[in-house]
């Protein structure tokens, strides 16, 4: 066996660099963010932070922009459950069948996940341009000209456009989560069900979906936390606009902190994102475990 002394010396030598970098640049800032959310700070390096109690939170909860950003998160969650979950499940089901061209489809469906979000978001911004953008042109060409909209410029429509583009990006990733679950279901269960006369739909309803409970739980948690963390797609496609209509908490945090220098407020938004995410994960895990 390795002697204890050399074991601890190695442990210290090997562990310290990772521990130090991680603690100083990730853990310390998180704690600092919670701490600073109770202080007022003007952002000038070296200037004093002034204790302000719950003022930042009061400001945050009184801001109409904050509630708009929460409503937008809610739309990401709604579309995440109403459209993206069935779509991802279905795609997962498709690629787990022994279908011709399976490999091609899996590659194609997954492709957007690996692409830089900035490039993808810019691509969609140009495709969705109101005048001469590909999408509206396409609608007109196929005789659906009355559906032409200003997809990113209308304050209501934009809050649905962005979650749908987000779905275009992430459906492939969630597809893998579902297909992993589907592949894990033992074949014998289906065979037994087939002997009992169950057909495709009933197999799906009574075997596949109930057995994928854990997968749905994982999806629910990633949908909640992912929706709370949305940033890139909004930052690039709309900058939170028009007029703040598409802001989400993370873009609000960025603009409040780095544009308007309201660092205290930015930290309270950051703390909110952190706490809300943890809260939703814990509640989802507990709730979906209890009714087993």
């Amino acid at each position: 066996m390795i002697s204890n002394r050399s074991k601890y010396a190695t442990a210290a030598l090997f562990l310290l660099p990772a521990f130090a970098v991680y603690t100083v640049l990730l853990i310390y800032p998180v704690l600092q963010s919670v701490f600073m959310s109770f202080y007022e700070w003007n952002g000038i390096a070296g200037s004093k932070m002034v204790f302000s109690g719950l003022d930042n939170y009061k400001t945050m909860f009184q801001m109409p922009e904050f509630w708009t950003s929460l409503a937008n998160v809610l739309k990401f969650i709604l579309i995440g459950f109403a459209l993206q979950m069935p779509l991802s499940f279905f795609l997962g089901y498709l690629i787990s069948r022994k279908m011709k061209g399976n490999r091609f489809f899996k590659t194609a469906f997954f492709m957007p996940v690996v692409l830089p979000m900035t490039a993808v978001a810019l691509m969609w911004t140009f495709i969705l341009f109101p005048n001469g953008g590909l999408f509206n042109t396409l609608l007109t060409e196929i005789g659906l000209g009355n559906l032409v909209r200003n997809w990113l410029g209308d304050t209501t429509i934009v809050t649905y456009t962005t979650p749908i583009i987000n779905m275009w990006v992430y459906a492939g990733l969630n597809m893998i989560i579902f297909s992993a679950g589907i592949v894990g279901i033992p074949e014998q269960l289906y065979q037994a069900a087939a002997i009992d006369g169950a057909t495709g739909w009933r197999k799906l309803r009574y075997i596949t979906i109930p057995l994928l409970k854990d997968t749905f739980k994982i999806y629910a948690v990633t949908c909640f936390t992912g929706s709370l963390r949305v940033f890139d797609i909004i930052f690039v496609m709309t900058s939170g606009g028009p007029n703040g209509a598409s802001d989400v908490p993370a873009t609000l945090l960025y603009y409040q902190g780095f544009k308007y220098m309201n660092f205290g407020l930015a930290n309270s938004i950051g703390t909110f994102i952190l706490v809300a995410g943890l809260f939703l994960s814990i509640v989802t895990n507990r709730y979906l475990n209890n009714d087993k």
Partner: peptide, 27 residues
């Protein structure tokens, strides 16, 4: 315990750290 401490980082939203990180870096 240390492994758990590291894994905690996977759950932390990046944006929460931005202002303190900026303070640290500009310091």
């Amino acid at each position: 315990a240390v492994l758990l401490y590291f894994l905690l980082g996977i759950m932390i939203p990046v944006h929460t750290t931005l202002v303190p990180l900026m303070k640290l870096v500009s310091g």
